[in-house]
């Protein structure tokens, strides 16, 4: 496994590089944003540990540039501010995980191995049914006219289930079973509320009610 470590601190960079090498990774060290961005594009790294506070070009910008160029190398960001704003920005820019300073080496190692495991798994393309395009990462849906809606947790699960089973009559109890893993005490009225909210976003025609049977999803 080959890693790129981007850390500008003259003491911490080499120490961390040493620690990662000991953990069995081949580690390159980069100390500024521009250099790191070029390295990340050229070399086939398995993972990049990226400090956000970098000279010449900020870590966030470097990450955005990689993602804009379709470079999907897994990235763990190191942040010193630990503010939620930075976390949100980091994940939005395409980070896979973050570690807040000060951290212990084992903590960083654990995160790195978790991200590596995850990235070796599958990553399918966007789900497209009946003119809708569901972005499973962003939990958002794009309509055929280009309008983009963010979905709440339940809305996303409902729509994904509908889109995976188009044209089928789906009962409320079946929906409940597949949307909530637990034997929750939610009655089917709650599902109705969420279905109605979903209709407001994707259009009323797409989800039709079959009285007494349930719902059917798809172009009428």
């Amino acid at each position: 496994m080959r890693l790129l470590l981007v850390e500008d601190d003259v003491q911490m960079g080499p120490t961390l590089q040493n620690a990662l090498s000991q953990a069995g990774y081949a580690v390159d060290l980069s100390v500024d944003g521009i250099d790191a961005e070029a390295l990340g594009d050229i070399e086939p790294y398995d993972l990049i540990v990226l400090d956000l506070g970098l000279p010449k070009r900020s870590g966030l910008e470097v990450l955005q540039n990689w993602r804009n160029r379709n470079n999907h190398v897994p990235v763990v960001i190191l942040t010193a501010r630990g503010s939620w704003e930075e976390k949100v920005q980091g994940f939005k820019a395409g980070a896979d995980d973050y570690v807040a300073k000060p951290f212990q080496t084992e903590e960083l190692l654990a995160r790195i191995s978790a991200v590596l495991k995850r990235s070796s798994g599958t990553s399918g393309g966007p789900l497209q049914v009946a003119g809708l395009q569901l972005d499973e990462d962003a939990q958002s849906v794009q309509l055929s006219n280009g309008t983009l809606f963010t979905l709440t947790g339940t809305e996303f699960r409902l729509l994904r289930y509908f889109m995976l089973n188009p044209g089928q009559v789906i009962s409320k109890s079946r929906l409940t079973e597949h949307v909530y893993e637990y034997d929750s005490d939610r009655d089917s009225n709650v599902i109705e509320v969420y279905v109605n909210r979903l209709r407001q976003k994707v259009g009323t025609d797409l989800i039709q009610t079959r009285r007494g049977q349930g719902y059917i999803f798809g172009s009428p």
């Binding site: 939620w84 976390k87 949100v88 994940f91 939005k92 896979d96 995980d97 995850r118 962003a138 939990q139 958002s140 963010t150 709440t152 947790g153 339940t154 809305e155 699960r157 949307v179 909530y180």
Partner: peptide
């Protein structure tokens, strides 16, 4: 508000990927 909360929820979903909680907002 809705935009920020959607972003936050997404971040939390990534942070708690293993648990994958359902975050709903109104």
């Amino acid at each position: 508000l809705e935009h920020e909360i959607a972003e936050l929820s997404r971040t939390l979903q990534l942070l708690y990927r293993e648990k994958s909680p359902i975050i709903d907002w109104e």
